[in-house]
Design a binder for these strands. Structure first.
Lengths: 344, 344
DNA sequence: TTGTAAGCGTTATCAT
DNA sequence: ATGATAACGCTTACAA
């Protein structure tokens, strides 16, 4: 039933080393022989065993994408499909496959370092910063194992990330251009690098305009609706309410939207709301949300490219890559009168 | 640097077959020896090569998930993460890994039948019906290769799907219970089994109530906002407008919502809108949408379990599995006065 | 209970 | 340009 290289060799009347060379299109084989052998391979419907090839070549032609499925609320999960698409589009054309693994199987022997790496199931790794602790990075560095982290992380030699600081600047600049001047920041965990960078960008831009962001206008919390709701209510009811909000996530922005609606605060006239991330449905809120789109497919592509470079032994130095976000202005912040109408 | 079974054997002063048996916890090895060998494996930080094991065992311990990344608009993509989570949770505990592959590499030799199956990269396959044509199913059947299709499909021996007919019935029943009686159906491609089954369920339930669904109230089209928008406008402006809509997707429902708003039609008082699928953000529309939640994690689990059964040689017969949807009633259809207030 | 040796299906190094 | 043959790292009869 199953046909191996040996079958092809004897059917073609050549040695299996010859067949192997045909398989790899070696220049030392005559066109004649190549044609003949290939013909027979077709006839016998032969496909080389990737496992045997892997053993001989000492490589799996597989790259691993490591995720923590217990964290179902992560930003990246929403865009998992497009990230995978991006990665696949580059590694697929280089004859690699993508293996998805869950760190959760963190049982004694189930650790991915064994399951995936030491067992040679994958030749390289891509992982989110949420699973890639500094300690793990160090271990991977020590093993000289090629990996890319999605998100900048201490200890990682090579990463791809969105430029969160620029994102903070872009949203802030947009608000200022629309005539807002009292910007509050909603959501984000204290100490979280993502939060820190975004806030930093926001502050930079305010500073340029001679403004600042007072501490009491920074509303820390999870990127959830409830948090956005509470934060907005508190801010809007305070003595000196802000005139605009930058939210860490669409969910937080939904909460803020709801709070404003309940308090009868007009959007965008009295309050502007802008948010990081662009979820598929954020343009369908009332009013539609101004948001910062992150090209997650591109993130996947970049991660894939960086990883392939590492595996091929180039890019020894290690480096990071920052992707620019894209501002999508919508009704929730557009309060200047325009002739052209609102963009979709 | 790298340590193999041979190294362990000589370090432990035993034969490598003994080490192999220890690895597989063979009962024919004394506890003494096991302890000794395991100790050495720990010391030397040994992990067996999955590739070598695979070659010897003639299996990859990998299962493939086949998708078509060119179809970025598919329903399942939104829930890709949770489907993967479901699959992984069952195959992971059986020491299998998940390989994601894209059919798009449909170049002559890049066909997944070669790349994945004939090359023995995976021991089993899960694929959406959109990539699994009847022809491909036949081929897989012929090869006796274990696979599960996500969605019922002609030619597939074994599949897992949501009960779309029941879904149609549930949404319809809910509308009837809320006092609606003129139900229109928005979205869905003529001939698409998904559409046919959902519509069928809808009709069954109407029939039970002595009602029917006239042809002109079936608005075929892609599951997009624009389609929902146009369909709703057309329906609402007609001589005899329906009093409620069942939409094939959240996007279509958004369009319908928008159309109603523009025409000043009150929701839910004058028009009820219910939709298949529950996107993460559908509860944030104004008003929030009544929708049919599909447990995609569970779908993954079921597919994984069915596949493992097939691989283990059980479940020879082949069978299908229908998962029940869950109705989430929200403001867009709840027009009866309630004491308890609206559910979230 | 342990050891020997023959696979598993390729690639790679030499000869020829 | 082609062929023998030894890896690659593990499993599995079969022997001892």
């Amino acid at each position: 039933m199953k046909v191996t290289i040996t079958d092809i060799a004897s059917a073609a009347g050549v040695a299996k080393s010859t067949v192997s060379k045909v398989l790899n299109d070696s220049p030392k084989i005559s066109q004649e022989t190549k044609h003949k052998v290939r013909e027979i391979m077709k006839q016998m419907n032969y496909t080389p065993s990737s496992i045997a090839t892997g053993l001989a070549r000492q490589s799996s032609s597989n790259i691993g994408l490591l995720i923590d499925m217990s964290k179902s609320s992560e930003f990246l999960n929403q865009f998992f499909y497009s990230i995978i698409g991006g990665i696949e589009s580059v590694i697929g054309s280089m004859k690699y496959e993508l293996t998805i693994a869950n760190v959760e199987h963190n049982h004694p022997e189930g650790h991915f370092l064994h399951r995936l790496i030491r067992s040679k199931r994958v030749d390289g790794l891509i992982a989110n910063t949420s699973v890639l602790t500094e300690e793990l990075c160090m271990e991977l560095n020590r093993l000289q194992f090629p990996y890319i982290s999605l998100g900048e992380v201490a200890g990682s030699e090579c990463w791809a990330d969105f430029d969160n600081e620029a994102g903070g600047r872009m949203l802030t600049r947009h608000l200022l251009e629309e005539g807002y001047s009292a910007v509050a920041f909603v959501g984000g965990q204290e100490g979280d690098p993502l939060f820190i960078r975004r806030l930093e960008g926001c502050r930079e831009e305010l500073l340029k305009a001679g403004l600042s962001l007072p501490e009491q206008w920074i509303m820390n919390g999870a990127a959830e609706e409830a948090v956005g709701y509470q934060a907005a209510k508190q801010l809007l009811r305070s003595e000196t309410p802000p005139d605009s909000l930058i939210c860490m996530s669409n969910f937080a922005a939904f909460g803020a939207l709801q709070a404003a609606r309940e308090l009868g605060v007009q959007i965008p006239a009295e309050l502007g709301i802008a948010t990081f991330d662009e979820y598929p449905l954020s343009r369908y809120t009332t009013p539609p949300l101004t948001s910062l789109n992150l090209d997650t497919f591109h993130l996947g592509v970049s991660a894939g490219e960086l990883l392939m470079e590492r595996i091929d032994g180039k890019n020894e130095a290690g480096r990071g890559l920052l992707l620019k976000p894209e501002l999508i202005p919508r009704e929730s912040t557009l309060r200047k009168v325009r002739e052209t109408g609102f963009p979709k």
